[in-house]
């Protein structure tokens, strides 16, 4: 589904990603872990197409398409979804209006008619129930005055509505209390299928207690330095990142 080869990216001439290799197949859950500043958020932004970053080398291929040729909105139409670490507040744009526009823009790109209002409402109701979101939420401006937990639930609600093929959850667990974490994780698990994939970016094991990864990768200084199964995450939780850093240190 997603194949990344030797990806290098920089911002303002500072290289952040220094040769990333990653392969994500349908049905898989990948976790990318690493200390602050290791390049986790950069990787998710680059996949989603943020223009502040310059891709200097390597390639990203998503379902047969070269991502470098696609604008962020075209990547979304192709099925990529990024759950933001810091969802942006947009005063004056209601959650409903935003979702309706996003869904119908994607449909338009695929040559489909706008979704009938009745179907839209039904889908919203279902997904709201799944994420235990109150109806009043819909008429509020996106993320404006939302608590940390509400912002993240809103991200997963959007994901549920947009039904992406690849969801990248960038530190979705930060700012969540235990209940919200369970609700969000439950939502992600319910939406999971053999046809889609999830990449979870996180510092901590705690989200992975709820969303079980098939693969765990350690990102350090712009490179994936170690990959393993879910046990790697447990090991990191216990021992931190230092032992990996030492492993990486040149001998002598």
């Amino acid at each position: 589904m997603l194949t990344i080869k030797n990806l290098r990216a920089s911002i303002e001439d500072k290289e952040i990603l220094k040769g990333i290799n990653l392969e994500v197949k349908p049905g898989e859950v990948h976790a990318i872990m690493g200390p602050n500043g290791s390049g986790k958020s950069t990787l998710s932004s680059v996949i989603a197409g943020r223009e502040d970053y310059e891709v200097t080398a390597g390639e990203m291929n998503f379902l047969g398409q070269d991502l470098s040729e696609l604008d962020p909105e075209e990547r979304a139409h192709a099925g990529i979804f990024l759950s933001f670490q810091y969802p942006v507040e947009i005063p004056g744009v209601s959650v409903t209006n935003f979702l309706k526009t996003a869904i119908n823009e994607s449909r338009k790109a695929k040559g489909l008619e706008p979704m009938p209002a009745k179907d839209m409402l039904k889908a919203m109701k279902e997904k709201m129930a799944l994420l235990e979101i109150d109806r009043s939420f819909l008429s509020r401006s996106i993320n404006e005055g939302f608590s940390g937990g509400e912002k993240k639930r809103n991200e997963i609600f959007q994901m549920a509505m947009l039904e992406p093929k690849l969801a990248i959850l960038d530190e979705t667990d930060s700012g969540l209390d235990i209940d919200a974490l369970r609700i969000v994780a439950n939502g992600v698990n319910k939406l999971k299928s053999q046809d889609n994939a999830v990449v979870v970016i996180t510092h901590y094991q705690r989200l992975l207690d709820h969303i079980t990864p098939d693969f765990v990768h350690v990102l350090l200084n712009g490179q994936i330095v170690k990959s393993g199964d879910k046990n790697l995450a447990l090991e990191l939780e216990e021992k931190g990142y230092d032992w990996i850093k030492k492993e990486q240190a040149p001998i002598g």
């Binding site: 979304a76 942006v88 947009i90 004056g92 823009e105 401006s141």
Partner: peptide, 21 residues
């Protein structure tokens, strides 16, 4: 970027933000 990452095209995203403004 937030709007575009949800599939809303450049012109529409601008319009939404200006309108909201």
């Amino acid at each position: 970027f937030y709007l575009k990452s949800r599939g809303i095209r450049d012109k529409e995203a601008r319009a939404m933000l200006l309108y909201a403004f």
